Simulated assay, not measured.
Amino acid sequence: MKCKVQLIGRLGSDADINTLPNGQVVATLSVVTEEYWKDKQGNPQKRATWHRVKFWNESTVGFIQRNIGKGQLVEIEGSFRYEEYDDSKGVHHKAALINGSNILPLHPLTKAHDNAATSDNGPDNDDQIPF
């Protein structure tokens, strides 16, 4: 059986694109989802949850490089798993990870993001993004 995941959230930063020693490319995304509700007293509440998503398909990684950026609202499909690793101090960790299979931008990148990505003197929109 497979655990299918569907997220709708915003990217906390541009994708981290890496090429592994075997030549395979991987895109790692940090995506935040938010839940809203009212407590028993009627006060609005909000919870943000951060998710780490990896894409391994080369054509999808290329699509992410060209079309996906910080602050953008996206829909992601994939499968859930745990990744285990030992840190530099030898401590063993187990972290939740989503292996992405599909990504859909729910709004296009803004022109300001495109300019900032291609020019050192482009506008810096970090102050406008709440994370």
Rank of each mutant, 00 (worst) to 15 (best):
M1D: 15
C3T: 11
C3F: 10
C3G: 04
K4M: 07
K4A: 06
L7K: 05
L7H: 05
L7P: 01
R10F: 11
R10H: 14
G12R: 03
S13T: 08
A15V: 00
A15D: 01
A15C: 00
A15G: 03
D16K: 05
D16R: 05
I17F: 03
N18P: 01
T19E: 15
T19N: 09
L20D: 05
P21Y: 11
G23T: 06
Q24I: 07
V25L: 07
V25C: 09
V25Q: 15
V26Y: 02
A27G: 01
T28G: 01
L29F: 04
L29P: 02
L29E: 00
V31D: 03
V31T: 04
T33P: 07
E35M: 06
Y36P: 05
Y36I: 12
W37R: 10
W37G: 06
K38C: 08
K38L: 10
D39L: 14
D39T: 11
D39M: 13
D39C: 11
D39I: 15
K40V: 11
Q41C: 03
N43D: 12
P44M: 09
Q45E: 14
Q45G: 10
K46S: 13
R47I: 13
A48S: 15
A48W: 05
T49A: 10
T49D: 14
T49P: 06
T49G: 07
W50D: 04
R52V: 06
R52Q: 10
V53M: 02
K54M: 06
K54N: 11
F55G: 01
W56A: 03
S59D: 04
T60F: 03
V61W: 01
V61G: 01
V61R: 00
V61K: 00
G62T: 15
G62K: 13
G62W: 02
F63V: 00
F63E: 00
G69Q: 01
G69A: 07
K70G: 05
K70V: 15
G71T: 09
E75C: 09
E75F: 04
I76Y: 02
I76G: 00
I76K: 01
E77Q: 12
E77W: 14
E77N: 11
G78A: 04
S79M: 10
F80W: 13
Y82A: 03
Y82P: 00
Y85Q: 05
D86W: 07
D86G: 08
D87G: 09
D87S: 10
D87T: 11
G90A: 12
G90L: 13
G90I: 13
H92T: 13
H93W: 12
A96Y: 10
L97C: 07
L97I: 10
I98S: 00
N102Y: 06
N102W: 04
I103L: 03
P105M: 02
P105H: 02
H107C: 11
P108M: 08
P108F: 10
P108I: 10
L109R: 12
T110Q: 08
T110Y: 01
K111P: 02
K111S: 08
K111Q: 11
K111Y: 05
A112H: 05
N115G: 03
A116L: 06
A117P: 00
A117E: 08
T118E: 14
S119I: 07
S119K: 14
D120S: 13
D120Q: 11
N121Q: 15
D124N: 06
D124H: 02
N125E: 11
N125H: 08
D126K: 11
D127P: 07
D127H: 12
Q128N: 14
Q128H: 14
I129K: 06
I129D: 08
I129L: 15
